[in-house]
C-alpha cells in the first residue's frame, strides 16, 4: 500500500456522472433473475409509483464499483486489483435507482486497519444525483495485501 495512503475521514470527491439507462437496468435485472416487470416496463413501474423503470437493490454497486476500483488501484491507494478481496457489503437505499438518473459517487473512507497481515479498508460509497439528491449508501469492506508484503509503518 502507498506510504501516504488516505486515512479514516478522507473523502474522495464525486466521480464523473453515470447515466442510468432502461437497457442497462433490464440487462442487470435479467442477469440476476429479477423478474418484476418494474425493471423492464415503464408502465408497470409507474403503476407502482415510480417515475421510470427501477433497478434491483444491488444495482448501485455497479456504479460504486467503477469509482472504488479506480480509486483503490490509483496512486493514492496503490492497491493492485488482483490483491483486492471484497469481504462485506451493505446497501441502504433512500429510493430505488431508476432510468434517467444521472448519478455520481462520493467515496468516504470509514476505516483503515491491519488484520491478520492484511489491510482492511472500509468505505461508504454515497450515491447521489447530479442535482444533489441522495439515492443510496453502499458500505464496502475490502482486504488487500498479504503477510509477505512489506508494510510501511502500520
Amino acid at each position: 500500500m502507498a506510504a501516504d495512503r488516505p486515512a479514516a475521514g478522507h473523502i474522495h470527491p464525486p466521480t464523473e456522472i453515470y447515466e442510468v439507462s432502461r437497457a442497462k437496468i433490464r440487462e442487470f435485472a435479467e442477469a440476476v433473475g429479477a423478474d418484476s416487470p418494474a425493471h423492464s416496463d415503464p408502465a408497470a413501474a409507474r403503476d407502482l409509483g415510480h417515475a421510470d423503470v427501477i433497478a434491483p437493490a444491488t444495482f448501485p454497486f455497479l456504479v460504486v464499483h467503477r469509482a472504488s476500483s479506480r480509486v483503490l488501484s490509483g496512486p493514492e491507494w496503490g492497491l493492485a486489483d488482483a490483491s483486492l478481496v471484497h469481504t462485506a457489503q451493505r446497501i441502504v437505499p433512500t429510493r430505488p435507482v431508476r432510468a434517467g438518473d444521472r448519478l455520481a459517487v462520493t467515496l468516504h473512507v470509514e476505516s483503515v486497519r491491519r488484520l491478520a497481515g492484511r489491510d482492511v479498508v472500509r468505505m461508504r460509497g454515497e450515491v447521489h444525483t447530479d442535482g444533489g439528491e441522495h439515492v443510496v449508501d453502499t458500505f464496502m469492506t475490502f482486504t488487500a495485501g498479504g503477510p509477505d508484503e512489506k508494510e510501511t509503518g502500520r
Binding site: A34, A57, T58, A88, R90, I91, V92
Partner: peptide
C-alpha cells in the same frame, strides 16, 4: 443479488428492500 431477489419476490414489491447487508 440472488439473496435480495428472494426477499423482493416474497414481499411482492421490487423496491421493498430498505437495507441489505452480507459478508462474503
Amino acid at each position: 443479488a440472488l439473496a435480495a431477489r428472494l426477499v423482493t419476490g416474497w414481499s411482492g414489491d421490487p423496491a421493498a428492500l430498505c437495507d441489505v447487508a452480507v459478508r462474503f
